[in-house]
């Protein structure tokens, strides 16, 4: 990837102290649908500091996932550039947690969580240590040897979270990972994610269509416009951590910011 001069995703070894973990400049992506060109995202500028938890909310079809897939190097942008600062060259740049179940059905939960580390040829003892840690953190230690079909949807997403964190990437990219879960599982997993994140202090970009979820999780919430997706407004979220989902929802400030974001989003969904 870095050897290909045409790609705009750079790895920068050295960085001035003020340099952000992720810097996005003028990012755009056009798709060809039949004969027409569709702009998925347009002119996106974004700086993310190391250890920050960023939530991006936007109307459906606004190009949120496209932005994330470009950051994950699963798709190439048509314009602009992404720079990700790599603090440790032996670590992978990013791991993604997908919306639908992406746990490999033919591997036990343990091997799923170890997947990234195994592909990189990490020594077995080190893999075991890391996998055990994240299985315990996600409450999956009892199911380590189960196959995914024996687990519920919530358990599978827990395994996805464990797999992404165990891989020890520079940044974590999450594409509505809890969207398919029921309310109770969603709240539980949000709290678990926050706990793991506070232990590891990874940089996270989390995409969601749920304003509540964004407010519960993020240090900053960025609102995207409808297609072509641009970053519209950003909110700094100062709720103290550790956060508990339902304590936070009882906070009047939570409701106030939530309504403000909804007013913005509403314009994007139904038009002004």
């Amino acid at each position: 990837m870095s050897s290909d001069p045409s790609t705009t995703l750079d790895r920068t070894g050295l960085s001035p102290p003020a340099f952000p973990k992720i810097r996005v400049r003028g990012l755009g992506k056009r798709f060809q649908v039949g004969k027409a060109w569709v702009e998925a995202i347009k002119a996106i500028d974004l700086d993310v500091q190391a250890g920050e938890f960023i939530c991006i909310v936007g109307p459906s079809g606004c190009g949120k996932t496209t932005l994330l897939r470009i950051l994950a190097d699963l798709e190439a942008p048509t314009e602009g550039e992404v720079t990700i600062e790599q603090s440790d060259p032996s670590n992978p740049l990013s791991s993604m947690i997908f919306q639908e179940s992406s746990i490999l059905p033919w591997m036990s939960i343990r091997r799923n969580v170890a997947y990234g580390l195994e592909l990189r040829g990490v020594p077995a003892a080190e893999i075991d240590k890391s996998v055990d840690r994240f299985l315990a953190l996600t409450g999956l230690d009892r199911f380590a040897d189960a196959y995914p079909h024996q687990l519920s949807g919530g358990m599978k997403q827990r395994a996805s979270v464990a797999r992404a964190f165990a891989n020890n990437p520079e940044i974590l990219l999450m594409d509505e990972p809890f969207a398919a879960l029921d309310e109770q599982n969603k709240a539980l997993l949000q709290e678990e994610l926050l706990r793991i994140w506070s232990e590891t202090r990874k940089t996270v970009i989390f995409i969601t269509h749920s304003i509540d979820e964004a407010l519960v999780l993020g240090d900053r919430v960025i609102v995207m416009s409808r297609r072509p997706g641009r970053l519209k407004t950003e909110f700094k979220i100062d709720f103290p951590r550790p956060r508990r989902v339902y304590d936070l929802k009882a906070n009047p400030e939570f409701g106030r910011i939530g309504r403000e974001i909804w007013t913005l989003l509403r314009e994007e969904v139904v038009g002004p």
């Binding site: 490999l104 033919w106 990234g116 990189r120």
Partner: peptide, 27 residues
């Protein structure tokens, strides 16, 4: 396709893709 994305996101080599995704997936 999601499994191919997973392999790609975890930077699987061609052979790793065969071994961990294509063969078990097609078994």
């Amino acid at each position: 396709r999601i499994y191919l994305d997973v392999a790609s996101n975890f930077k699987a080599t061609r052979w790793q893709l065969c071994r961990t995704i294509a063969i078990p997936g097609a078994l």
